[in-house]
Simulated scan of single mutants.
Amino acid sequence: MQQVRAVVAKAKGEPVSVETINVPDPGPGEAVVQVQSCGVCHTDLHYREGGINDEFPFLLGHEAAGVVESVGEGVTEVAPGDFVVLNWRAVCGECRACDRGEPQYCFNTHNATQRMTLAEGDLAGTELSPALGIGAFAEKTLVAAGQCTKVDPEARPAAVGLLGCGVMAGIGASINTGGAGRGKSVAVIGCGGVGVAAVAGAALAGSSPVIAIDIDPQKLEAAKALGATHTIDSSSEDVLARVKEICGGYHEGAEGADVVVEAVGRPETWKQAFYARDLAGTVVLVGVPTPDMTVPEIPLIDVFGRGGALKSSWYGDCLPKRDFPMLVDLYRQGRLDLDAFVTEEIGIDDVEAAFDKMHSGAVLRSVVVL
């Protein structure tokens, strides 16, 4: 066992604190990773606010890259010294999804068996709940070995670590879930980190037009830099009319976009996405709603009459061992600008301030560099 510094949320809504924690030696199927970078994601803020569950205290952080320090018994997929991006869906290889050759839909993903604990103070010995089974706002963390995906060691950790959650969720929502590609139009509602990644994914797949929709001019500019051909300011423009106008200029008679990615997670924007798609088009929900939200009232005849598909996207329907190395290679080739997602690099003591910046919309990602 060793002790390291880490960011912990001790109680609902309270500011996070940097604490000393105990990291156990890896057991069977586990690995200890020396964390080099970890992005500050909205999901971490949801944990702090009690929006995920109430299993406090939480060890926050999950968009991470680092180097494997040690592995437990039976681990063959990674070895000490490997540069890895951490993922939160280590597939089991045995469930019905895995059995039918669709491990990206694994229903039995797993995390480390052992728990890290607080090392000091009144709560010394208390088990920590790692965010998404990772907990990487820490100098070192314990994960299941299957959560470690080997990638090109020459890649910049602060950039490629973001594939561990938000960037992969957005790119995958466009390509894997939505089926974006040549000859298809894509609209993305909400241009935070995940939405801008969905724009980048659509552009990477060859879709055109790629339409970015948001109320924030800064976010729309970021979307243009990552491949949006058109932008719509939904605070002042009629979104449905503009999407139909833009897509009609590419395909005469189009009623909307072939794929609409909703990256906000609200009923009103999901309804907007429903009506912004073309006949037989696809709506992809990748924005995370709160438990109290419900599907908006839509006439069932409209659901029937428009055809197509209404989908939710789990982690961009990705398979980390397939998708992470490929996207890192595209980054290294200059074909996917992951650096553009890194607004600032910060220290482990600056996470609470990063949450405040997140509220203002001033950053795509703050990244903790250790």
Results as ranks from 00 to 15, higher is better:
189 I>W: 01
193 G>S: 09
195 G>Y: 03
196 V>Y: 00
198 A>Y: 07
201 G>R: 02
204 L>F: 14
204 L>S: 14
204 L>E: 14
206 G>L: 07
209 P>H: 02
210 V>F: 01
210 V>W: 02
210 V>K: 03
210 V>T: 06
214 D>F: 00
215 I>A: 15
215 I>F: 09
218 Q>T: 11
219 K>I: 02
219 K>H: 09
220 L>Y: 11
221 E>V: 10
225 A>G: 09
227 G>K: 07
227 G>M: 01
228 A>T: 02
229 T>I: 03
229 T>V: 02
230 H>V: 08
237 E>D: 14
239 V>H: 03
242 R>T: 03
243 V>Q: 03
253 G>T: 14
254 A>K: 12
254 A>G: 01
256 G>M: 04
258 D>V: 00
258 D>Y: 02
259 V>N: 03
260 V>Q: 02
260 V>K: 11
265 G>N: 08
267 P>T: 12
272 Q>G: 10
278 D>S: 13
281 G>R: 10
281 G>L: 06
283 V>C: 13
283 V>M: 12
283 V>H: 12
283 V>A: 08
284 V>A: 06
284 V>G: 05
285 L>N: 10
286 V>Q: 00
290 T>S: 14
292 D>M: 06
293 M>T: 08
294 T>W: 07
295 V>L: 15
295 V>I: 14
297 E>R: 14
300 L>S: 10
301 I>G: 11
304 F>V: 12
307 G>Y: 08
310 L>S: 04
311 K>N: 13
311 K>M: 06
311 K>I: 05
312 S>Y: 08
313 S>A: 11
314 W>Y: 05
317 D>T: 15
318 C>D: 00
319 L>V: 11
323 D>M: 04
323 D>W: 08
324 F>D: 07
324 F>V: 02
326 M>N: 10
329 D>H: 14
333 Q>L: 11
